[in-house]
Amino acid sequence: MTFQELILSLHRYWANQGCVLHQPYDLEMGAGTFHPATFLRALGPEPWGAAYPQPCRRPTDGRYGENPNRLQHYYQYQVVLKPSPDNIQSLYLGSLAHLGINPKQHDIRFIQDDWESPTLGAWGLGWEVRLDGMEITQFTYFQEIGGIELNPITVELTYGTERIAMYLQEVDSVFDLAWSDTIAYGDIHHETEVQCSKYNFEEADISMLTATFQAFESECKRLLARGLTVPAYDYCIKTSHLFNLLDARGAISVAERTEYIARVRALARQCAENYLSERQTQGFPLLKPQGQSRSKPKGKALVKS
């Protein structure tokens, strides 16, 4: 199974479970959780189900393309379901079977791994799913997002697409993965790893990044004050990425770190609060019976709970 088939296969599986096939968000982010389809949609009572691949940037994880397992840019496949279905573990295992990983021929384990994102003011409990000892998925029942206690609970599945593909293709280096039948992962991403690692660790202009962080933070606050939550949240995402860049560049001392994280969290919290109250004002549109919904989903209903 090529890398692109893997994503297609997950798309098909989760679409069949009634998920909206969202697209990657067009901003740099450290995890698929930042995507508004997760961060904002997890808030409030409206039912929701979405699946999407998300390119993720983790500047500190760059290894100049020299380490077969570490990348500063990689792809998560993200599934969120609200409310969390009772049979979610079986649904998840079904998705593995769909990828050709027969759970009856492997040792699949749910190992405790509690998730927390200090920048998003979010946490949840769950597992890392291990396939014959290798971590392939993060499985989390969100409890809080942006400091807001969730009800109903959203469950988040984050597949490590490269890991799974490496397992399926039996290759030891991510760069050797077959992206398609003719193109390797390395053909597409090796040079980006080399150049971006050099940028992240050596070239990024610290004073420009610091100034931009401040400018974006102000812009986010200004937009929040004007009731423009969605663009405000974009700026919140951007500050988080700038922080990651500064961190990789070694420009942030330990004491400052805490302060930066607190600043991003303050933005995220405010975005979450504003979003929730806006949806409330709109009467939580997705709560309406399906017939009245503007976008009428065809085919199967949302995952049964």
């Binding site: 077969p68 397992n69 021929q105 492997h106 040792d107 396939l131 014959d132 000892g133 290798m134 030891d172």
Partner: peptide, 23 residues
């Protein structure tokens, strides 16, 4: 490794575990 599976052929599981450890 103490696994939670018992198969006649544990090769796949063993190799998986070996690969992870080597990384």
């Amino acid at each position: 490794s103490v696994t939670n599976m018992k198969l006649e052929d544990m090769r796949l599981i063993r190799e998986g575990n070996e690969r992870v450890l080597v990384a």
